[in-house]
Amino acid sequence: MNEPAIEINGLKKSYHDVEALKGVNIEISKGEFFGLLGPNGAGKTTTINILTGLVFKDNGITKVFGKDTVKDFRFTRSKIGIAAQEFSVDWFFPIEKLLFYQAGYYGIKKASAEPTVNSLLDRLGLSKKRNARLRQLSGGMKRRFQLAKALVHDPDIIILDEPTAGVDVELRRDLWQYLRDLHNAGKTILLTTHYIEEAELLCDRVAIIDEGKILKEGDPKILTQELGSAGITINIAENKSELKSLFQDFKFTYEDKRIHFSVKNPDKALPKIIDILSNANIHIKSIKSNKSSLEDVFLDLTGKKIS
C-alpha cells in the first residue's frame, strides 16, 4: 500500500458555537512516528476521535490507507488501535477477559487471540493481575492496560492519546521504550501529547496544533533549529563598551561582563561569536548554551507556553 497511513484534509468541527477544528490537514506515512503537539483544548483529541469514529466531523476528509473513515469504517477501524487518554471502568470482568472481548470486537476469536493476549500481559507487566478487575489496578497499570487493549488486534496504526499522562518517570521511560519497539516493528504511530520531551524523543515528525489549527509541521530537530530560539551566555573577563558595534547582527543583552545571545541556531552562531570575541581580543571566561526545544518553537509560534 503506497497510500498514506492517515490522511486528514480540511477537517472542521464545531461544538455548538465553539470552533474546535478550523481546517486541519495532516498526512502520516506508513511506518512513521507522528506527534500531534499542543496544549489542552487545542483540538488533538477531537482530531483522533473523528478519525476513529467517536465524533462526527462537520467537514473535511479523513482517510486511513486511502479509505474513507466513514464509508469504509470496518476497514479503517480494523487498522487502528487506540489508547484513549481517559480510563474506562468495568466492574464485571477480569482484565484478561476484557482483552478477549476487545479482540472479539475486531473479529478475532478467543483461541486466536490467546497468544497475543498472553504476550501483551507479559510485556506490559500485567500477567499477575490477569484475574483482577480494573478497579483493583493502580493508575500505571490502568495506563498499561489501555495500551494492551489498543494492541490486542495487532493494528497497523496505533493512536495514543496522551499515553504517559499521570504516570511516574520509570513507567514513562518503559512505555517510551515499548513505543520505540513497536515503531521499529513497522507500526505507524500517532501520538498526541503536551509533553515536549516525549515528542522530541520519539517522533519522526510533529505537527503543532493550537486553537484548532496546525501551526507548523516537520521534523522536531529541524523545527527547533529553524524556529526555536536558544540562548548562549558568555562571561567575559573585563567590561567592554564596543560590543554593540561588534555584534550588530545579533540579538543580545549585556550586563556586568555577561553577554546573553538569543539565536535561532546555536550550532552555527557559537563559532561566529567566539571568532568575533577572539578577533577583538576579548577574553572568554565561560560559555553556556541552552538548547532550543519544541517548547521554544511553540512559544515562538503562539506566544504562550504549551503546558
Binding site: 487506540i82 484513549a84 480510563f87 471502568v89
Partner: peptide, 14 residues
Amino acid sequence: LLQQLPDLLTAPLS
C-alpha cells in the same frame, strides 16, 4: 458514563 462505549464505537462494528 464509565467510558466503555468508545471501545465499541471505535471497533469495526456497525
